[in-house]
């Protein structure tokens, strides 16, 4: 069966100006229980790659530069 891509508004937002992933920081990526945050190859910053969020907050709480905001997923809001 052929596969289509579909759009999804994701709950975790990373402020690229504050993110220091390019300096070697991977805190948010490390602490995510669902492994949905990855480095964006284009920018060197963290981003939410998969819309599989438990909005549990360690990524936001543990971020050293307050770059991460966890919103409630749209379906629950």
């Amino acid at each position: 069966m052929p596969i289509a891509n579909h759009h999804s508004s994701v709950p975790v937002i990373v402020d690229e100006d504050k993110c220091i992933a390019d300096k070697g920081c991977t805190v948010c990526i490390d602490v995510c229980p669902l492994d949905v945050l990855w480095i964006n190859e284009a920018t060197g910053k963290a981003h939410m790659k998969y819309d599989e969020c438990w909005y549990c907050m360690p990524c936001e709480a543990d971020c050293p530069t307050d770059a991460v905001t966890v919103n409630i997923p749209y379906l629950l809001r």
């Binding site: 220091i20 300096k23 070697g24 920081c25 805190v27 050293p64």
Partner: peptide
């Protein structure tokens, strides 16, 4: 010399 790198090292 980069405090950002020192900071990540602490983590």
């Amino acid at each position: 010399d980069d405090p950002g790198i020192r900071r990540v090292a602490v983590m």
